[in-house]
């Protein structure tokens, strides 16, 4: 029986989430997430006409400070946990395909 989230939707959400779920995970997550979403459906019983959303429990808005320079991490500290570094830069695999002509 197809649940609320089909296997192809799990693959799609997985990609949006920058995950790469295995076939086994796709099957399991589809079942589990469907059960969770079915439970969540009960929110539809609640009348929320004219109710404002609460993004944050306290009425704190627009906390401002002076825009003053402050000390920050030195390059060596900031790069200390980098999986791959090249001098003072974070190194990543090539972004553009060499054949794309870009």
């Amino acid at each position: 029986m197809a649940g609320k989230i089909s296997e192809s939707e799990v693959r799609h959400i997985g990609h949006l989430s920058r995950l790469d779920p295995s076939d086994e995970e796709v099957g399991r997550f589809s079942e589990q997430l469907s059960a969770i979403l079915e439970y969540i459906e009960q929110l539809n019983e609640v009348d929320t006409t004219d109710v404002q959303p609460t993004a944050h429990a306290l009425p704190v808005h627009n906390v401002l400070r002076e825009d003053e320079p402050r000390p920050s991490l030195a390059p060596d500290q900031a790069l200390a946990n980098a999986p791959q570094r090249d001098g003072d830069f974070f190194a990543v695999p090539k972004v553009l395909d060499q054949d794309s002509g870009a």
Binding site: L43, N44, T48, V51, Q52, P53, T54, A57
Partner: peptide, 10 residues
Amino acid sequence: KALKVRTLIR
């Protein structure tokens, strides 16, 4: 919807 229900809980 959840954010609105949150208001009601609060």
